[in-house]
Design a protein around this nucleic acid. Structure first.
Length: 287
DNA sequence: CCCCAGTCCTGCGGGC
DNA sequence: TGCCCGCAGGACTGGG
């Protein structure tokens, strides 16, 4: 499931598409549901044909192609999508092919096994409305510790659930949220409003450490194997996971406890009960 | 506003 | 061998 490190890796891999002109758009129709395209294919094709790709940018967990007319193609991999220049995991789940000319890449591909991905062509106004700062918070790699605390510190939600809120900050998903809190030694169930400033500092530092390290390792390829990088190779940050999907295994940090799996907001959370102690109940005030 | 539950989708693994 | 079910969860929607 592509989160910030995986999407950053995709953006770096498709950077050679910058400068290319889009000369065609194909939607291979196999026995699969079509992914959500907005606007629909014919209008989308008219909109991108002849346009030059001026930039490839990451917006949280999305890949954005900035076109030379000011419009943007926003590619959302969601659960199992990939943005690639070549060598998708297979041809049967290839959803969208941008034919390119005049540069260093021949095609830009959107591949998606599960088909939950979404691809949109938007003008300036629609981009601001759907993907602007009202909808999406600052990037997890550039937000300051103070801003993180300001945006989440008042919430009564468990900190792990709040880290996934893309209105507060973008880029953190289910996998990295568990890894971040383990490094920060913060119990995932603690309400945000009970975290002290010093603990927000630790969460912020751990977030930067984990995400940067994961980018260096080109992201995490999980058991389903759908996440691939260039030349159809897996990432390797999964080899460095300390808690995610390691329930029942000993904690590599303390060696004293087994990693535990719980469910929060219908999603799996993994943590070490020794390193990430549940804080004592608040005292001193009635109720 | 805040927060939760349901929905979309496909592949896979468990149970029988 | 095959079928059904549950599960994986990012982002959106509807409702309390």
């Amino acid at each position: 499931m592509p989160e910030l490190p995986e999407v950053e890796t995709m953006c770096r891999c498709v950077a050679p598409a910058v400068g290319c002109r889009i000369v065609g758009l194909l939607q291979p129709r196999r026995k699969l549901q079509a992914i959500q395209l907005s606007p629909p294919l014919a209008e989308f094709r008219r909109g991108v044909r002849g346009r030059r790709i001026a930039a490839v940018e990451r917006l949280g967990k999305r890949v954005v192609l900035a076109l030379d007319d000011g419009r943007r193609v926003v590619l959302e991999p969601r659960m199992s999508g990939l943005v690639l220049l070549a060598d998708p995991p297979n041809r049967s789940h290839l959803r969208l092919v941008f034919r390119l000319a005049g540069g260093r890449a021949a095609e830009l591909l959107f591949w998606d096994q599960r088909g939950l991905g979404v691809v949109s062509l938007v003008d300036e106004a629609e981009f601001a409305r759907r993907f602007g700062p009202q909808k999406l918070g600052p990037d997890a790699l550039t937000i300051s510790a103070a801003e993180l605390r300001r945006r989440l510190g008042g919430s009564r939600r468990p900190v792990k659930v709040a880290l996934l809120d893309q209105k507060a900050l973008v880029g953190v998903g289910n996998l990295y949220a568990s890894e971040i809190l383990h490094r920060a030694k913060v119990y995932p169930g603690v309400p945000c409003c009970q975290l002290r400033a010093e603990q927000w500092g630790k969460v912020h530092a751990a977030m930067r450490t984990v995400l940067r390290l994961a980018i260096r390792h080109q992201g995490s390829t999980l058991g389903d194997g759908t996440y691939r990088i260039a030349r159809n190779r897996p990432g390797d940050f999964q080899l460095m996971h300390r808690v995610y999907q390691r329930h029942g295994a000993p904690c590599v940090q303390c060696g004293r406890a087994e990693i535990v799996r719980i469910v929060q907001a219908q999603r799996s959370t993994f943590f070490c009960p020794a390193c990430q102690r549940r804080p004592p109940p608040a005292r001193g005030r009635r109720q």
